[in-house]
Design a protein around this nucleic acid. Sequence first.
RNA 1: GGCCCUAUCGUCUAGUCUGGCCUAGGACACCGCCCUUUCACGGCGGCGACACGGGUUCAAAUCCCGUUGGGGCUACCA
Length: 486
Amino acid sequence: MSTVRCRIAPSPSGFLHLGTAKMALFNHLFARKMGGTFILRLEDTDAARTEEEFVSAMCEGFKWLGIDWDEGPAFGDEPEKGDYGPYRQSQRRDLHVREGLRLVEEGKAYKCFLTREEIAAEREAARRENRSFHSKWRDASPDEVAAMGDAPHVVRFRVPEGATVIEDLVQGTVRTENREIDDFVILKPNGDPIFHLAVVVDDGMMKITHVIRGDDHLTNAFRHVMLFNALGYDLPRFAHLPMVLDEAGKKYSKRMRGANVLDWRDDGYLPQALINYVALLGWTPEEENRELFTPEELQAHFTPDRWGKSAARFDLKKFNWLNGQHIRMLSVEELLDLVTPILEKAGFDLGGRSRPWLLQLAAMCREKLHTLNDIVAQTDFFFQDITEYEEKPVKKHWRKDDAAERMARLMAAMESVNDWTHDGIKAAYAKLAEETGEGLGKLVHPTRLALTGKSVGPGLFELAELLGKEECLKRMRAGLEYVKSL
RNA sequence: GGCCCUAUCGUCUAGUCUGGCCUAGGACACCGCCCUUUCACGGCGGCGACACGGGUUCAAAUCCCGUUGGGGCUACCA
């Protein structure tokens, strides 16, 4: 058996779409699992929509996700590689045209001189009579064709008699009567190839063995199979995967946030989490009840069967959870490196902070993050003064008759701490709790409010240690003043 | 309109091919309890689905037919 060759063939019209990323991932995983070759081909035939800027944006998307390819064009800052080039469809036009014309010579396609008006009329008639479109040029004699000379025309594929059957790896056996399919155009009046011809010529000449793509191409596959046969290429296996839907169950619109995979990077998600989540949207692991996979594990466990056939919605809640799981698998060092630019972007001055201090900061947040960006709300009080206190905890902890008194006691306890560490501070608080007979919570909450302005955040004692004794006392003093003013 | 694909908890899904082990399993979300200085994490429990209607069968989520919902294709787009 020949070794597996599969491909992703995106149209570089702006950025790497989430749906394209899913198809790329499944192709990539499949190729890796089967020890095959994964090919990247740019379908940039629509020259008007293709700009180099778009190409490199798309390349960035692939790289962020960690999807690498064995053969492909010069792409972003990647050089061209592979022996089946060129890998840009626009550079293969001569090949497409040559093969299209070959079909005409072999009688498998024909020149059609129908005018726009004639086409419209025939189309309407066909629809009315519930039959497929028919061009009178299909049966024209060589003399009739010759008589037309160079008059404007398209080249249509002569759809053969019979039926076409696809043994789809995902959808199973799919069949259609060929009479359902019109003689479709393969070469435009200006000589340009049409998509269907171009993909088949490219897939055929690149010796693609497995065409794994979105199920929006399922019915196109009938045309493709006929073209493969007419051109005499080896027929690849097909796998038409369901597409990714948004949370409303609609097609994931280009304009929606998240359509661009790099949106997720900007929103604080990890590429390995996105890969993991998207893989789960259409694939179930053999190992039941397992969902968490690193990219390496995914490759090891990926099974070419067990592909779902119905469309799946992108559920942000679940993705948030999964992203949190992946964040927890990061080392503190890795997390800090990822989070540093985010903190800087938030305007926090990290200049004076030591590496150990920052590592502690990252460590205390790791278990609490769903996205990397959550770090900002978790740690902002370290980098800026408290300008206001959350209303709810103020009401709960400070609008009490004994609040001021308690705050004063807490300050005194703090002041007495010599060993300003998590343990040292905690010990002082525990001691105070014991003396006054109050629960530790009664002491912790008002303190947290003074130090952070909020009711939620990292553990109080570790946070206090990082903040420093002096700063803590300063904030306690300010808190006490505030309590008195109530 | 025609053709093709699809349909299990709110969401992602296991189970469907090879009918009985399914009074339908897991995950996210939600609710409750526990752990706990808060949140989060973790543990325990709860809520919650075989789209509908006909068959076939001793027996159907599983097989067949129909209906309905969703998606796609039907271009001188890709």
